[in-house]
Amino acid sequence: MKRVHNPGNIIKKQICQFLAPRVRSIIESLPQDLLSKTEEIRLRHSRPLIIYWAGGESYLGKRGPVASVKEAYMVSGEDLERTLELISSYSLYACEEEMRGGYLTIPGGHRVGLGGRFVVESGSIKTLRNVSSLNFRVARQIKGAGEKVLPFLIDRHVGRIYHTLVISPPLGGKTTLLRDLARLISNGVGILGQGGQKVGIVDERSEIAGCYQGVPQLDVGIRTDVLDACPKAEGIMIMLRSLSPQVIITDEIGREEDIRALEDAVHVGVSVIASAHGSTLEEICRRPVLGLMLENNYFERLVFLSNSRGPGTLEMIVEGERGLPLYSARSIRE
């Protein structure tokens, strides 16, 4: 597996320009090795500036990492306001829809989570005011993340992709795997025994393709169409009607309408690759709608990921109908 760029450079080149000048200068002065592993940059009103990486965090002072909160740089309201202006390209009016979802996407596919006071009108979120925290999540594409999994997802006789459900706990690498599967299936790899297939991604939370103004910022393949920020159920129907995909990829399914749309896709012969939060098959089976889908054997392959040896650890691949394990990391480790 290879990472696309040096992640430290990604932060300096793609993220720093959206930070308020004082925060920017702090982040820019960090050593390269620290930037390379940084996964999140957290700005919270009147609280210390913190960066997070897998399994750790660091307070940041004006001259770099510091040991205590007292020495850390306290993020001001002005820093937050300026940063929000920069990430919204000076246009909060153009980002209302995304803000209602609690995030904004910036060029490079990085997502900025927003916290603050939500204004609710007639029971639904109208807008977000008084932003009090910002969380920059560094989008990292790991090319090759799906190479190990893909051979188990192909019906080699007809070159068809099996209906697949990727299951993992949060931060388990579901989205990274889906993104790489999209890239591999779309571009075509030798293992498919043919050219690529047309892939449709319904990316409700702009996570898979990391679209900025509708354009994918991450490599999702040359035959891939993306419906960005589109509700899953409607997006799947739009895909089926107008973009004739051979494979539909979407993440975090679970609502009844999502499942109904996926059923439609399955019935018209389009392969579906989806993901769901969970750790074990039992846990998924307990969820009303997903459980029903598994009971009815909609999915032909179940892929389990975990964090046991870092995000994206492939634990198991199971044949959907009979529950036969096709791959098990435990048996390999033993």
Partner: peptide, 10 residues
Amino acid sequence: IWGRGDKSGQ
């Protein structure tokens, strides 16, 4: 004023 507030506010 530029860029401040939501669409209706702007």
